[in-house]
Amino acid sequence: MERERESVSAMFGAVPEAAGMARDVLREALEKWEVRKGADDAALVLTELVTNAIRHGTTISVRVVRERDDALRLEVADGSRDLPRPRTASTEDEDGRGMLIVTALALDWGVRPFLGGKTVFALLKVG
């Protein structure tokens, strides 16, 4: 039987610790929903999305949505209108690979602008 759609949300300041706090929220939700398959990929994607939001120095809103038994949507909202984009980083670059990782692991991802910011979402297969 298909579960009803469930979600959890949290807000954080744009501090380095926000990525770890967001992973804790995700981990608790996945344990509650008994999701194991895909949990590591979801944690990595969420970390990349939150890390991008931290760079903009605003409040970060994280929402984890269980769409179906096999699908999870991660949403990270911030107060910047700058849109994320995959780019090619050189071997010497210390960053710049986050959205390539999201693209590789997620079934789909996108951006929904809103007045004063944006929400970046990623859809992942889980089990």
Rank of each mutant, 00 (worst) to 15 (best):
G96I: 10
V35H: 08
D69K: 09
L100D: 12
D70N: 10
I54C: 04
E94D: 14
R23W: 03
V62T: 01
V102R: 07
I60T: 01
R112M: 13
T119R: 14
A89P: 01
L26G: 06
T91Q: 10
H56N: 04
L74C: 06
V35A: 12
V45E: 01
A106D: 07
G98K: 06
R73P: 00
R97P: 01
M21I: 02
P16L: 11
T47L: 11
D70W: 03
S7P: 00
E94L: 15
M21R: 15
R81Q: 09
S90A: 09
T88L: 15
K32A: 14
L49S: 00
G117A: 05
T59W: 04
G20I: 02
V25P: 02
A22D: 07
D78E: 04
V8M: 11
V120L: 10
E31S: 12
E31N: 08
T88D: 12
E94N: 12
G117I: 03
E94C: 13
A18K: 07
R85F: 06
A89Q: 02
I101Q: 00
A42P: 08
L124N: 10
E94F: 15
V111C: 09
M99N: 01
R5T: 12
T59H: 05
E28V: 14
I60W: 00
E48S: 09
S61A: 14
L44T: 06
D70M: 06
L100V: 12
V25T: 15
E34N: 15
E92C: 04
A71G: 10
E2H: 11
L83D: 01
E2D: 10
R27Q: 14
G116D: 10
E94T: 12
H56E: 09
R55M: 05
D95R: 15
R23F: 04
A10G: 15
E28N: 15
I54G: 10
T58C: 08
L49C: 02
D41R: 10
F121T: 09
L44Y: 01
V15R: 14
T47G: 08
G127P: 02
T51F: 02
T91G: 10
V50P: 04
G57Y: 00
E4P: 06
S90M: 06
F121Q: 03
V126H: 13
P84G: 03
L83R: 12
K37Q: 12
D108R: 15
D40Y: 10
R85Y: 09
M1S: 13
D95M: 07
V76F: 02
G13T: 08
G57S: 01
I54D: 03
V15W: 04
D41L: 06
A39S: 14
L44F: 01
T119G: 02
F12T: 08
A29V: 06
M99R: 01
L44Q: 05
R68D: 12
T59A: 09
R63T: 14
A104Q: 11
I101C: 02
K125A: 13
G96L: 14
K37Y: 08
L74Y: 05
K118N: 03
D108A: 15
E34G: 08
S90F: 04
L123W: 03
E6N: 08
R3D: 11
D69Q: 05
A14S: 15
L105M: 06
F114Y: 13
P84A: 05
S7M: 08
